[in-house]
Amino acid sequence: MADATTAAKDLAIDVRGVSLWYGTFQALYEVNLEVKRGSITALIGPSGCGKSTLLRSVNRINERLGSYVRTTGSIHVLQHDVLAEDVEPARLRKEVGMVFQRPNPLPLSVRDNVLFAHKLHRTGQRYTRAQEDGIVEEALSTVLLWDEVKDDLDRKATTLSLEAQQKLCIARLLPVKPSVILMDEPTSALDPAATEALEELIWELRGDYTILIVTHNMAQARRASEETAFMLLGRMVEHGPTEELFLRPHDQQTADYIEGRYG
């Protein structure tokens, strides 16, 4: 029992027995997933197996669909039960940032994009323009975008290149210091060079942030993650250190998938 609690402390995300229904369609079946603090975990599996659904349950953005979505089981983020009634989604989403498949910067300036979440969550304190500039520079430097846009901070963010847009979408999460960042196929809209740049960046963020990343790209999962979880048809099939899962999968379905025998 004591062991279990110390172990729980090292977990950033702890998904237990989560089932989820879209209307009458069940998309997740009793899914379990443990994500260690400061690690990068890749979530892989064929199209439609529920990766996005699982990810979107962690920050409860699924709730946008209203009562049409029903979730059972428990999801703990840093030991807080996030599915509990009294959890404020705004606070949860400050702690758990999300990067989407298609870069989705807001139709505002680069600067306003970086400060958007920051302005939502700063309570009471006053920030001078210089302090805000500092925040913007730090966030953009972290994602290696500063040099490219530093003379163009008033430019509308939706006019940047896709690579820059996606980096910006990561940068805008950083000022509120989230502990977890969820990424849903963040490079699938990018060309190979941009993908490589993004992967490097994600690798750099390791340790400072816990990252759960969905990917269709086996090579990306191998390159850019420490642990990998494999899902199939709404079920969690296997989860372990990335090297081990790819070299010695325990489950035949996992082996079939990483050898490319599913779509």
């Binding site: 953005i61 705004a90 400050k94 940032g97 989407f100 298609r102 989705n104 958007f116 939502l120 979408c169």
Partner: peptide
């Protein structure tokens, strides 16, 4: 709708 989703995912009401 992606704009709304992006903002909500950052914790906007």
């Amino acid at each position: 709708d992606s704009y709304r989703e992006a903002a909500e995912a950052m914790g906007a009401s």
